[in-house]
């Protein structure tokens, strides 16, 4: 694969951008999901009879709060494969 200098710069900055995008985009969902899991643990400890309901709500909430991380994954994939 032979690239000119300009193409090489574009490719390199796209790859760098993909790495930054994934790293920064994973920060928020990581903190949020950990927070949700901690709160769910507290809830289960307080009322163990509602454990299944709490777990279900926690999983759905985590999947929803994960969506920003997924958007950054999609953008990173676009940067890697389409430039």
């Amino acid at each position: 694969m032979n690239l000119t200098l300009a193409q090489g710069i574009v490719k390199a900055s796209a790859l760098l951008g993909a790495g930054l995008c994934m790293g920064m985009g994973a920060l928020g969902p990581g903190i949020g999901e950990g927070f949700v899991a901690g709160k769910a643990c507290e809830g289960i400890a307080r009322s163990p009879e509602n454990a299944s309901l709490i777990t279900r709500t926690m999983l759905v909430g985590q999947a929803v709060s994960e969506s920003t991380g997924i958007y950054s994954l999609v953008i990173a994939l676009l940067l890697i494969f389409s430039t």
């Binding site: 997924i70 958007y71 994954l73 999609v74 994939l77």
Partner: peptide
């Protein structure tokens, strides 16, 4: 956009 990209991104990311 949000409901479809969530499913798409999860499955594609896992496959990759």
């Amino acid at each position: 956009v949000s409901i479809s990209f969530r499913l798409f991104g999860n499955i594609l990311g896992g496959a990759i």
